[in-house]
């Protein structure tokens, strides 16, 4: 999914081949990751889609089912992956992810430590940011979950950038071998303050730390612990508001006062009102309008950033 080597770069000429991962897009809220396999079919409410029809087509193509229904086949990106991955845990979404990568100042070549791995939503974006020469070491104390994440990293083609380990970071801290080598550390743990001293040990001078916690009590305690080794401690909340856009046709009405001298616009209709006055209806103007969507995520978590003293 990432152009880690330039042969996998997206291009007009790059086509879908057997074994590729494609994101099947039916609607913005209906997407599914599918590994293309000759002889397989995808069945959904739009009909039956034969994978063999997809091979040789360009990513971004519209493909049809036996019933004439259609979907689009998209090349996976970390953003699309976050929307379609299987949730084994609560995951981070694009607003938090983007902010974390920017605020941890992650650039290619960085060594980043993460715990826990969870469903690997953030890990994917961390891997993109450190590519092609850096590395992400991610830890989770849940063996099966770590294994599933490892399978996912393989599937989306970032396994050369990510090492997923099984380890209880709150209990044991990060492995000693990373001491003084990490450029950035990310913590998403129930009791982050237990892992903060270890994070401090892992970081290089001026290295950055981020802790994600849903509850303010966790933040409070983490900040107290950070005081001893860290500076520039700042806590944020970041959310997204989405907008819906539609074209609205609106009729404008004007009372026609004195006959014959209408404004500059020619009336398209003239109706007789019950009281005798004539109402002129001008051509209904249509305009594109936007408004915020009625529902939104109200809280994800607090992001606390700090810099090693």
């Amino acid at each position: 999914m990432l152009a880690i080597d330039s042969t996998r770069k997206m291009s007009f000429n790059r086509t879908i081949s057997n074994g590729d991962l494609a994101i099947v897009y039916a609607r913005h809220d209906n997407m599914k990751p599918v590994t293309v396999s000759e002889g397989s079919v995808l069945q959904n409410r739009f009909g039956v889609f034969k994978h063999s029809d997809w091979i040789g087509k360009s990513f971004g193509s519209k493909v049809f089912s036996n019933k004439g229904g259609f979907v689009y086949l998209l090349a996976p990106t970390p953003e699309l992956w976050t929307l379609v991955l299987s949730h084994r845990t609560q995951i981070l979404y694009i607003a938090d992810i983007s902010f974390v990568v920017m605020y941890l100042e992650i650039v290619p070549g960085f060594v980043v430590l993460e715990s826990g791995t969870g469903s690997g939503s953030l890990t994917t974006s961390l891997a993109r940011a450190v590519a092609p020469t850096g590395h992400v070491y991610t830890f989770d104390f849940h063996e099966q979950r770590s294994g599933s994440a490892r399978d996912d990293f393989e599937k989306i083609g970032i396994s050369s950038l990510v090492t997923a380990g099984v380890r209880d970071i709150q209990g044991e801290g990060f492995p000693e071998e990373f001491a003084g080598l990490a450029d950035a550390v990310f913590l998403d743990l129930p009791q982050p303050w237990l892992a903060i001293p270890s994070a401090a040990k892992m970081l290089r001078h001026d290295g950055t730390l981020c802790s994600f916690s849903p509850c303010i009590e966790q933040v409070q305690r983490s900040c107290e612990t950070m005081q001893s080794n860290f500076t520039d401690i700042r806590t944020f909340e970041v959310l997204l508001r989405t907008y819906e856009v539609r074209e609205g046709k609106m009729e404008s009405l004007e009372i026609d006062g004195d006959d014959g001298s209408n404004g500059s616009l020619p009336p398209c209709k003239r109706r007789q009102r019950s009281d005798g006055a004539s109402v002129v209806s001008y051509p209904s103007s249509s305009s594109v309008m936007a408004r915020p969507c009625g529902e939104a995520r109200g809280h994800t978590g607090y992001l606390t950033f700090a810099r090693l003293n």
């Binding site: 913005h28 933040v219 409070q220 970041v238 997204l240 907008y243």
Partner: peptide
């Protein structure tokens, strides 16, 4: 294009201090 979306980010910073967060 597909997957079109207009978003507006919202960012709030917190003061975190004992009993004064």
């Amino acid at each position: 294009a597909i997957g079109l979306q207009i978003t507006e980010p919202w960012l709030r910073e917190y003061q975190v201090l004992p009993s004064r967060t």
